[in-house]
Design a protein around this nucleic acid. Structure first.
Lengths: 151, 151
DNA sequence: TCCATATCAATGCAACTGCATCTATATGGA
DNA sequence: TCCATATAGATGCAGTTGCATTGATATGGA
């Protein structure tokens, strides 16, 4: 028999989690907008692609690494390509697929985004909790992940 | 001089916060959909209105209590009204305004939503951390709120 | 080889969001 | 009283998301 009614502590943690994450996300989006930069979603993709290096990534790999839906990635990549931040290359051994590679312009945009994004994280998170508490927070959040294992 | 570059601990906490909150939110939305229920946003409003009781709330009060933008509340209320879950009443002493009151049908929908929503919270949050950790989590998240005071 | 099924990615359509603006009423001061 | 300004809420429009489906290639078995 599974428990179906949440404890007050669970409800409170949930409510805080929802509220704080939305609030902080909004602040970051605002900071990016103020600096004339693209939305946060672009950063996530550019970040993954930058880490992947010259080999690039397949769209389905981006879906695995980020939390975007397939159609979302498809259109996001179309926008990034239109802006010259990525390029789509055909894949030799799979005619259905493509490899996505970040361009120089893409790296530059990512860098400028990080200037605003990183500053926001420092102010909104880093400056509000000591390192020890930040680590505790990360650990506790980690236990809520799905699947509840790995890093 | 303000620090502009976030610590690794801050980055990790931030990343977890974003990822976990999105993941959990999505799971809750899925659970609601599977039960043929409206999206989470509707719950937030119905919840506030149910707590407010017969006196109802003005739209701007809903904006204060939730994190919705003005235009968002305006249209959300239109949908809720179209579904008969709320009613809009004129305000005696302010011709610009209206009072929003939840209907019986609204309370019933809220109740059915809570059955799925509460179960999700119990499974996704309550079952994954002991009460003490849930309280710690809520406290730490509370320090990230804006403004960083009050409850 | 041929076909059924699976996988990769794109897209039509309806709903929703964000932004800016608009209408209507309220309020305070000249 | 009259007007400038402020506040409450709605809305047009463009961009984005979610859902379902489609087009295209791959793969494995008969």
């Amino acid at each position: 028999m599974t428990k179906t009614s949440p404890s007050p502590a669970a409800i409170k943690a949930w409510a805080r989690l929802m509220r704080v994450s939305r609030q902080l996300m909004e602040k970051v989006e605002d900071a990016l907008k103020e600096n004339g930069l693209p939305p946060l979603a672009w950063y996530d993709v550019l970040h993954e692609l930058a880490e992947a290096g010259e080999g690039g990534l397949r769209p389905f790999q981006l879906i695995e690494r980020t939390l975007f839906a397939q159609y979302n990635i498809s259109r996001l990549l179309a926008r990034l390509e239109a802006d010259g931040l990525i390029e789509k290359l055909p894949v030799a051994d799979d005619g259905r697929g493509q490899t996505i590679r970040i361009t120089g312009s893409g790296r530059e945009t990512r860098r400028r985004m990080w200037a605003a994004y990183g500053r926001s994280i420092a102010e909104l998170v880093g400056a509000r909790l000591p390192v020890e508490d930040l680590e505790t927070l990360a650990t506790l959040l980690g236990r809520l992940r799905d699947p509840p294992a790995g890093d």
